[in-house]
Design a protein around this nucleic acid. Structure first.
Length: 284
DNA sequence: CGCCAGGGGAGCT
DNA sequence: AGCTCCCCTGGC
């Protein structure tokens, strides 16, 4: 067990922000996360968090995964006080962190995310892992599945993943897995590229367009200047930033602001009735 | 059954 | 850059 007191860190918000489709709520304030073949449970008690791993694994892996070294109070402090929309959105999601996820997992996950909703995306990914991922046991002795390596998917017929619910995205995953498995796409090289270079390279992948490439840059490469524009964010920008979002002002960390906006639009603006109310806990 | 939306993308011009 | 058409699944 490892315990930490962390500012600007909220498991519920991270989970619901929809950046990691393998983070799920387990108990009232407890979440489990499967990442890079590892399994973690974490419980939030106000500013305190208890993680189900030893200090060493926490320091070596999870600390970076949750981006605990990132200065989120700086990002929050830079928000234009006159921009009430952004101020609200940021306050609402002030515990969000941009997770440092595995590049291949992010590529596959966000190819699957296109024209898809979060519940289904989670199910698709769970299906793929159960079918093609390596089975493992967590500290409770329960079975869980790692995300399959590219080679485990590249050998499949292009339509095989339709059985996992991917629909037409099946061939995108199989072909992209192939281009990584056979070395045509070098993830190591992409990791060393700048944002612009990496995005251009990712756009070559079958099934990856503008929005997904930006998601991959932000969530798989931690390029904080990536600003993915999906339908929710587009509508918000059209509504609140008719003269364009002030990217200049937030140069270098536009991505976290995009997450605050996305999270606000997803949780609050679109369905106010389902938004969490102060002093009331959400049902499981 | 049809219709449509769900965190777009490919393939054109 | 903008346009069409398109892929599939689940909910209504």
């Amino acid at each position: 067990m490892t315990k930490r007191t962390i500012d600007h860190f909220n498991l519920a918000q991270i989970c619901e922000s929809g950046q990691c489709f393998r983070m799920t709520q387990r108990g009232e304030d407890t979440y489990c996360i499967i990442a890079a073949g590892r399994y973690l449970e974490a419980e939030q008690r106000g500013r305190e968090c208890v993680f189900s791993c030893g200090e060493e694994e926490f320091e070596d892996f999870w600390k970076a995964y949750f981006d605990l070294e990132g200065d989120y109070s700086f990002y929050l402090s830079q928000i234009n006080p006159n921009d009430s929309y952004l101020r609200n959105a940021a306050e609402f999601g002030e515990g969000i962190r941009i997770l440092r996820q595995d590049l291949w997992e992010v590529i596959a996950s966000f190819i699957i995310s296109q024209q898809n909703n979060i519940v289904r995306i989670r199910r698709c990914i769970a299906n793929i892992c159960e079918r093609y991922g390596e089975p493992k046991k967590n500290f409770r002795g329960e079975e869980y599945f790692a995300f399959p390596e590219p080679g485990a998917l590249s050998c499949l017929p292009e339509d095989a993943l339709k059985e996992c619910g991917l629909g037409y995205r099946s061939k995108y995953i199989v072909r992209t897995a192939g281009s990584i498995a056979d070395g045509e796409t070098d993830l190591g090289k992409i990791r060393r590229m700048t944002y612009r270079q990496a995005k251009a390279e990712l756009l070559k992948l079958f099934g990856v367009g503008e929005k997904v490439a930006d998601c991959i840059c932000l969530l798989g490469l931690h390029h904080m200047q990536a600003f993915p524009v999906d339908t929710h964010v587009r509508q918000a920008l059209e509504k609140y930033y008719k003269r364009g979002f002030p990217k200049r002002r937030y140069k270098g960390y536009e991505g976290i602001l995009q997450q605050y906006i996305f999270y606000w639009e997803l949780k609050h603006a679109r369905s106010p009735s389902e938004a969490p109310r102060p002093g009331r806990k959400q049902e499981v």
